[in-house]
Amino acid sequence: MTNEILIAGFGGQGVLFAGKILAYCGLMDNKELSWLPSYGPEMRGGTCNCSVCISDEPVGSPLVLTPDILIAMNQPSFDKFVGTVKAGGTVFVDSTLVDCACDRTDIKIFGIPSSQLADENELKGGSNIILLGKIIKETGIFTLDTMKKAIEKVVPPSKAALIANNFRAIELGMNS
């Protein structure tokens, strides 16, 4: 069983950080995994994406071209990648920023106003984490416990005060 995840958005939205949390979830659950950021010209143009593979087998190509799960945090990313999602796949969208209308019927699309939720709950920049909460609720790819452990691992000790906020963001996403 392999889950190929693609996270895409603007630089500064926490695309790579969200990917890192998913990668650490895999590490916590003793899975095989890879995390690959875009670092090419597209990143220098302000957009950013990140491939995460979580698997029971050693990961082959770490570059996700046909994701099982897509997280789209801006319109260009949604438009560019929604067509690449595998049939039966799932898409999570920050619906505050993205119009996620799409004529595909073989995938599930969840629009969550995650930017708005983050602002309303004084979780500035927490839209990415809210989306992760929604993902674990809808896909069951990881447990809440695993994700909390991963967050504790990813947030650097100098910013430990932010762990509680991240936990709050996850729960907001799960309940959205």
Binding site: S34, Y39, L63
Partner: peptide
């Protein structure tokens, strides 16, 4: 190569 240098793995 750049792919191996940039990717994270356990």
């Amino acid at each position: 190569d750049g792919l191996l240098g940039q990717m994270m793995e356990p």
